[in-house]
Amino acid sequence: MKIFCLVITFLFLVGIFANDYAKYNDLVGLTTAGIRYTYFQPMSVEGRPGANATVSKLEYLIEKMVDDVNNNYKYQEFRKICFLLAVPNEIEILLEVDEPPPRPIEKANQFLDIMLQQLEALLAGATREDVKNIRRAYVVWSLRSAITRRILGAPDDAPILPKCRLLALYLSTQSPLAYIEEVNIDPTGHTCIFKDRHHFEKRYSKIGGSWSEVDGNGQFRETLETQLQRIQPQVPPTS
């Protein structure tokens, strides 16, 4: 009897978990469709860094996420926005997010649900790999535009944490298998300090008037502007 009950419980849990993953796949598809739609929808932005510019609604949403350092819109935790924008296939990034529910797949669905409220449209006929790559392409080029305005073209006294979060998202899209899990800042050195999923660190700081990648001693490695020239995908989405 005990074995029978264990089997029934196991089958019940398998059914729940399968439903969770089915919902996750649906939400990834829906939010990807929304990302694709909002990428092509312009809007006027006022009262923000680089004000009075015309940006896409997707770019506006990304900025809203990285600016939410006080959790006004439920995006304070960097791992959450990295998952939503750069690595939606890597749900283990949510293991350390201190928000219920406890299981990463449930957190993934909860956060995708929140994002879905801000997006529209459906995406049909794409494989899961297509969805991941399409989603990332739209995000990448919006991030590039935001980085150009908010980091390369911003005054030095602009808040550094949103800048670092933009950079971390960009790095995660360019190396999704080594996505950034943690964003820290050194306010005295005006330096962004990133830790990826493999616990390797990257640092970015402004040297000689240019934002650049630096080593652990603050020595120059390569300018951010040069790295942006190698953006992947090289061509922005057109439809």
Rank of each mutant, 00 (worst) to 15 (best):
K2F: 03
K2Y: 06
I3G: 06
F4Y: 04
V7M: 13
I8E: 14
I8V: 14
T9C: 11
F10D: 06
L11K: 09
L11Y: 13
F12V: 12
V14C: 09
I16C: 07
A18S: 12
A18C: 09
D20A: 10
A22M: 05
A22I: 12
N25M: 09
L27V: 04
T31Y: 02
T32H: 04
T32D: 07
A33Y: 01
G34Y: 00
I35F: 00
Y37Q: 15
Y37W: 13
Y37D: 15
Y37V: 12
F40L: 13
Q41M: 13
P42D: 03
V45A: 15
G50F: 10
A51R: 11
N52T: 05
A53C: 09
A53M: 11
T54H: 07
V55H: 02
K57Y: 08
Y60P: 00
I62F: 03
E63C: 03
K64M: 12
M65K: 04
M65S: 10
V69P: 04
N70Y: 13
N70K: 12
N70W: 08
N71R: 05
Y73F: 13
Y73P: 00
Y75L: 05
Q76A: 11
K80E: 02
C82S: 15
C82P: 00
F83H: 04
L84V: 03
L84I: 06
V87T: 14
P88S: 04
N89D: 15
E90C: 07
L94V: 04
E96N: 15
E96P: 03
P100T: 13
P100H: 03
P102C: 04
P102N: 11
P102F: 05
E106G: 06
A108M: 06
N109I: 02
Q110L: 13
F111C: 00
F111A: 02
F111E: 15
M115H: 07
M115W: 11
Q117F: 08
A124Y: 12
T127N: 10
E129V: 08
D130R: 10
D130I: 10
K132Y: 14
I134V: 15
R136H: 04
Y138C: 12
Y138Q: 05
V139K: 05
S142I: 04
S142G: 14
L143A: 04
R144F: 01
S145H: 10
R150I: 02
R150E: 11
L152I: 13
A154M: 11
A154C: 07
P155L: 05
P155H: 04
D157W: 06
P159T: 08
P159D: 13
P159Y: 01
K163R: 15
C164Y: 01
C164R: 01
L166T: 11
A168F: 01
A168G: 15
L169T: 10
P176Q: 11
E182Y: 03
I185Q: 12
G189W: 06
G189R: 15
T191C: 03
K195A: 07
E201G: 12
K202R: 15
R203V: 05
S205Q: 14
S205C: 02
S212P: 07
E213Y: 06
D215S: 07
G216R: 08
G216Y: 08
N217A: 14
Q219D: 14
Q219P: 00
Q219V: 10
F220K: 09
R221S: 08
L224K: 05
L224A: 09
E225V: 06
Q227E: 10
L228W: 03
L228E: 01
L228A: 00
Q229E: 14
R230P: 01
Q232C: 03
P236S: 11
P237A: 12
S239I: 09
